[in-house]
């Protein structure tokens, strides 16, 4: 049994901050060690949720696309939304989940621009769902060491 990754990162970060940084000179190098330790602490926090966050977000975006279809007036955009909504995760590597997330968020921007230009109740509902998801996405990404 190996030590868990999060435990390894925690021990390394605490060691860098408490044992290494105070003995490092000059101050620039000391600050660099400290920054590295803070990054490791944040990576540790991200690690536990790294796949879940991406899967949940990609799923939420596909749901928005599927539900937006009746409100979309642009045929080409509707087709892209339909394709994206029909996809599902099959590759769970972080790089693959990130690539899918990038593509979905780029499409979300296009959808957002489109519904902003429409004057209909359905467009407003889609817009509201987009904002709800964008707010939720920042909640999923929050880091405990972040200022806000």
């Amino acid at each position: 049994m190996k030590p868990e990754i999060s435990r390894v990162l925690e021990v390394c970060a605490v060691g860098l901050m408490g044992d290494v940084a105070p003995h490092v000179a000059p101050s620039y190098r000391q600050a660099t060690v400290f920054s590295t330790a803070v990054i490791l602490t944040s990576v540790r926090e991200e690690l536990d949720r790294i796949a879940e966050r991406r899967i949940l977000e990609n799923r939420a975006l596909r749901t928005i696309f599927a539900e937006a279809l009746p409100a979309v007036a642009d045929a080409a955009l509707r087709e892209r939304l339909e394709c994206a909504a029909a996809e599902d995760e099959s590759d769970f590597k972080i790089s693959a989940l990130d690539a899918a997330n990038d593509a979905l968020r780029a499409l979300l921007i296009d959808l957002h621009v489109h519904v902003e230009s429409l004057d209909s109740e359905a467009a407003r509902r889609v817009e509201s769902e987009i904002w709800r998801e964008l707010s939720a996405s920042t909640e999923r990404r929050k880091l405990s060491l972040g200022a806000f």
Binding site: S42, L134, T138, R141, K142, L143, L145, G146, F148
Partner: peptide, 11 residues
């Protein structure tokens, strides 16, 4: 530290 915090500030 800042990209997500900045998004939240904008929201």
């Amino acid at each position: 530290m800042q990209i997500n915090a900045q998004d939240r500030a904008a929201l």
